[in-house]
Simulated assay, not measured.
Amino acid sequence: MSRLPHISSAERGPASVIAGPWPTYSQFKSLPERDRWVLYGSAKAYRVALENQGLVMAEGYEAFIRRVCAELEI
C-alpha cells in the first residue's frame, strides 16, 4: 500500500482535525463484493484528498483501513 510522504502541518499551514470515524461505510456491506472494493478504493482516495487539503483525521491510517474493511466486510 503506497502512502504519500508525510508533510508536516507547518508546511501546509494550519491543520483542521476531523474527529471520527467519518464517514462510515457499513450501509454498503450488502452491495456485491466488486462494488465494495470500488468503495474501498474511493474511501482511501477521499481520505488522501482531505489530507492534501490540510485536514488531519483523528483516526490513524491503519485504524481507518481496518475500520473500512470491517464495515465493507472485505
Rank of each mutant, 00 (worst) to 15 (best):
M1V: 11
M1H: 15
M1P: 13
S2W: 07
S2P: 01
L4V: 09
L4Q: 11
L4D: 12
L4C: 07
L4F: 06
P5I: 10
P5H: 03
H6N: 06
I7H: 06
I7W: 01
S8P: 13
S9N: 14
S9H: 11
A10D: 09
E11G: 08
G13P: 08
G13H: 05
G13F: 01
P14C: 05
P14K: 13
A15K: 11
A15S: 15
S16V: 14
V17Y: 09
V17P: 06
V17M: 14
I18N: 05
I18G: 00
I18P: 00
A19F: 01
A19E: 13
A19C: 02
P21H: 05
W22A: 12
W22H: 06
W22K: 10
P23L: 06
Y25I: 08
Y25W: 14
S26F: 07
S26N: 09
S26M: 09
S26W: 05
F28N: 14
K29E: 03
K29D: 08
S30A: 09
S30H: 11
S30G: 04
L31I: 03
L31W: 08
P32M: 02
P32S: 07
E33L: 15
E33F: 05
E33K: 14
R34Q: 10
R34P: 00
D35G: 00
R36M: 02
W37F: 15
V38D: 09
V38N: 02
V38R: 03
V38P: 00
L39D: 10
Y40K: 15
Y40C: 08
Y40G: 07
G41P: 10
G41E: 08
G41F: 05
G41C: 09
S42A: 12
S42M: 13
A43M: 01
K44R: 13
K44H: 05
A45H: 10
A45R: 15
A45Q: 15
Y46K: 12
Y46P: 02
R47H: 05
R47C: 03
V48C: 13
A49V: 06
A49H: 12
A49S: 14
L50P: 05
L50F: 04
L50M: 15
E51A: 09
N52E: 12
N52D: 13
N52Q: 15
N52S: 11
G54E: 07
V56D: 04
V56K: 13
M57V: 00
M57K: 07
A58P: 00
A58V: 01
A58M: 09
E59V: 00
G60E: 13
Y61F: 14
Y61I: 12
Y61D: 13
A63E: 14
A63Q: 12
R66I: 04
R66G: 06
R66V: 04
R67G: 04
V68H: 06
V68F: 04
V68N: 03
C69L: 10
A70M: 11
E71M: 02
E71Y: 00
L72P: 07
L72N: 03
E73R: 15
E73N: 14
I74W: 05
I74S: 04
